[in-house]
Design a protein around this nucleic acid. Structure first.
Length: 739
DNA sequence: ACGTAGCATGGGC
DNA sequence: CGCCCATGCTACG
């Protein structure tokens, strides 16, 4: 638009309109081009006096809430000079800069990231589409419902929210073409600012390819003004003609506690965060449990050690049902609505989430209608949960990797929480031992010191009456509060006689000839940590913070002390490898393993090796299987149990099957009818390993734990499926082994 | 008979 | 008192 030569033009300034042969660049218009100004107007603009000169009598002048400076809020020229405060009013950018990680007003058009050149911009950007927002100045941001303070269902609110366009049709694409998207203002979450979301449609979030293209082209400048993480996700439909597209990410929260430095290197302090905040006491406290409480170490962990920018979104302490076999993780409603793409239909859609090891999991993100509201759930989380070795009481964290916008799911083991995290643990009825953790209500201050957390921040939700469970109290409760996992955590390998190393397909197992000892718990006395750390030194919270990533992922390749023999009457005189959860009659693969101490080689015919070798992957899922099955299955092949088992046991790697941890999937093939049985080489060529190539590291401690668990579960499952019994012991004896 | 999807219930905030 | 959400319940495949 701006040019320095050619035929005379009219100054873009409507109050000037002076003809000029030489134009100079003014402000960036929403079309992506710059306003052509005469020399005088351009100078005024350059000097920051444009509005003072030409808009003095116009409406829209307001004062910065901090410095009092007059800012014109009624035109596009000064649109980037201020931000709207959540509590009302505006703040000039200079003041705002000192308090927030921010970009100028999100609707301010900066350089397009979606279009490549001016010509393209000119061609594709429809002025018609901009008339709603560009005609007379700043978009009147709607004050979005507070994430943690809205008593109204956000879904309802969305439908009544400020819309840039009008929807005239029920067709999602037409809705889209008609510009039915909206921009929400940053929103306070307690004393934080919520993500600014762009929701292109309150009802529909799936668009055809052309609509998708159109969306990004038409709204290039608007989108380009959104920082970083507006990422589209694309999934080909079955027919391959229509791509179902949804916007995968929201804009990250401008401010999040413990956020990594932004591009400016600025890290907001909590003090600053609350500067413009009205703390909403009770409501804030009520939802505070979902606030991301990342430590710096965790952020590093999430970012994979790189300098990637991480935006913590929220976290949740896992409930028993979250970690149950149903594989449904209930998401906090407000968090789901604030940080995950909107869902219009209960079925939702697959959401790609990456774990800390870089594996991507496709989880079905959906909701259930519930009491005129919604319950948001992630389905198919079982393999993911299992791979992270999570149990009730542990915490999953959701964050976003910038600039890709990937959702990252991390975790925090309850047994390893620092005092900082302890103070924010959710007590859970199913893991009552965590009560002790919760009672330590300390929290780290921004300056690194520790202080008490207000009592509202410690959720103590528990089920009481109405439950058909046994009601216990006092001592009984205390006794039951020690879970099997904790018992396992108390077990130590015997001090004498080093274990015999048993190799099963190159995976080391330690077989102890003596019973384990029970020692007092330490921070490291969990199953994860015990195996790799010297317990000589009591770790400080800081140590724990430093250790956590290592403990959880990287450091140990063996399974030292994880499974110690149990001195049970029925095993007297036999040195049998059994897990600490062992009960008489347990037929799991660990317990039935002959402790011959010799290496299990490929020719070994012991029960363990046979079971592993004869493990048959389920057949590929056919097209005729319902979408629902696919949806509820684990869609990332890396998640499959059999794949893991086979990978761990290094039996080969070939064809793909649509892996599924659904037991039924594998039920079609019987052990007896397996044509591959006994033909290990053939089998190894045809079984699906579904191994993600990037995951080639040696099994970590948790991996090793996973091996045992996988082997056990698979064996049980296999026996169950095929009505097998070992030594006359059926799988039914194993029912209570919830390892 | 069993597993699961989806809804209902009710305690807690 | 309304909403959230953990979990119970059950129809269905």
């Amino acid at each position: 638009m701006a040019s320095s030569s050619g035929s005379p033009k009219v100054c873009f300034n409507s109050t000037c309109k002076q003809a000029t042969e030489v134009t100079r660049q003014g402000w960036l218009c929403r079309t992506g081009d710059f306003a052509d100004l005469c020399d005088r107007c351009a100078s005024a603009f350059k000097d920051g006096k444009f509005c003072d000169t030409y808009h003095l009598n116009a409406s829209g002048w307001r004062c910065c809430e901090s410095c009092g400076k007059q800012i014109h809020c009624g035109c596009i020229v000064s649109f980037h000079m201020f931000i709207l405060l959540d509590a009302g009013g505006i703040e000039c950018l200079n003041c705002a800069k000192t308090e927030y990680i921010l970009t100028p007003n999100p609707t301010w058009p900066s350089a397009s990231r979606f279009l490549t050149g001016p010509a393209e911009r000119t061609r594709d950007v429809s002025s018609n589409n901009w008339r709603y927002i560009a005609g007379s100045g700043p978009v009147p941001w709607r004050q979005a419902p507070s994430l943690f303070n809205s008593s109204k269902d956000q879904h309802e609110v969305q439908l009544t929210s400020y819309s840039l366009g009008q929807s005239t049709t029920d067709d999602p694409c037409e809705r889209f073409v008609n510009g039915s998207w909206r921009v929400n203002a940053p929103e306070m979450i307690g004393d934080r600012v919520q993500a600014t979301g762009i929701q292109y449609d309150g009802k529909h979030n799936l668009f055809k390819d052309d609509c998708y293209q159109s969306f990004f082209q038409t709204n290039a400048t608007l989108l380009s003004s959104l920082p970083e993480t507006f990422v589209a996700h694309d999934q080909k439909s079955e027919k391959g003609k229509v791509s179902r597209v949804h916007v995968q990410q929201f804009r990250p929260p401008p401010i999040v506690g413990r956020q990594c430095s932004n591009s400016n290197g600025a890290v907001p302090s909590l003090e600053n965060q609350s500067h413009n905040t009205k703390v909403r006491g009770e409501t804030r406290a009520r939802h505070q449990r979902y606030w991301p409480q990342f430590t710096d170490q965790e952020l590093q962990q999430v970012s994979g050690g790189s300098n990637a920018k991480i935006t913590p979104l929220f976290e949740k302490v896992l409930s028993a049902s979250d970690t149950g076999k149903i594989g449904r993780l209930v998401l906090p409603k407000k968090c789901a609505e604030a940080y995950l793409p909107p869902i219009s239909e209960p079925e939702g859609y697959p959401l790609v989430i990456q774990d800390l090891k870089g594996r991507e999991w496709v989880l079905q993100y959906r909701f259930w209608p519930n009491n005129n509201s919604r319950m948001y759930v992630l389905e198919g989380v079982t393999p993911c949960i299992q791979s992270m070795q999570l149990q009730a009481g542990d915490t999953v964290t959701f964050s976003r990797l910038e600039p890709e916008g990937k959702l990252i799911m991390g975790f925090r083991k309850a047994s390893l929480v620092s005092p900082y995290h302890k103070g924010n643990e959710t007590t859970n009825t199913s893991v009552s031992a965590h009560e002790e953790i919760s009672n330590d209500s300390k929290s780290r201050n921004p300056d690194g010191t520790w202080s008490e957390v207000d009592k509202f921040s410690i959720p103590t939700k528990r089920k009481k009456g109405g439950s058909k469970h046994l009601k216990l109290k006092g001592e009984e409760m205390l006794q039951l509060s020690v879970t099997l996992e904790q018992v396992q955590g108390l077990l130590r390998p015997p001090h004498t006689n080093p274990p015999t190393i048993v190799l099963i397909n190159d995976v080391e197992f330690e077989v102890f000839q003596e019973a384990p000892t029970i020692e007092s718990p330490t921070e490291f006395s969990t199953d994860d940590a015990r195996s790799l750390c010297s317990t000589e030194v009591e770790p400080t919270p800081e140590h724990l913070d430093h250790m956590r990533p290592m403990i959880n992922h990287e450091s140990c390749n063996t399974m030292k002390g994880l499974y110690a023999p149990v001195d049970l009457a029925d095993h007297v005189g036999k040195a049998i490898t059994r897990h600490p959860h062992h009960k008489p009659g347990c037929a799991c693969i660990v317990c039935i393993q002959p402790p011959n101490g010799s290496n299990h080689k490929s020719t070994c015919t012991c029960n363990v090796c046979l079971a592993v070798k004869n493990f048959t992957p389920p057949p590929p899922m056919t097209q005729t299987q319902s979408d629902k099955q696919v949806r509820n299955s684990v869609q990332n092949p890396t998640q499959f149990l059999y794949a893991d088992i086979i990978r761990y046991t290094q039996m080969g790697n070939t064809q793909n099957t649509n892996g599924n941890d659904d037991h039924k999937t594998g039920a079609g093939q019987s052990f007896e009818n397996d044509p591959n049985r006994g033909n290990s080489s053939f089998r190894s060529q045809n079984i699906d390993l579904n191994i993600q190539p990037e995951r080639e590291e040696e099994p970590s401690v948790s991996d090793s734990m996973g091996i045992m668990r996988l082997v056990q579960e698979s064996t049980q499952r296999y026996m169950k499926l095929h009505k097998l019994s070992i030594n006359g012991i059926t799988d039914g004896n194993h029912k209570n082994h919830d390892l």
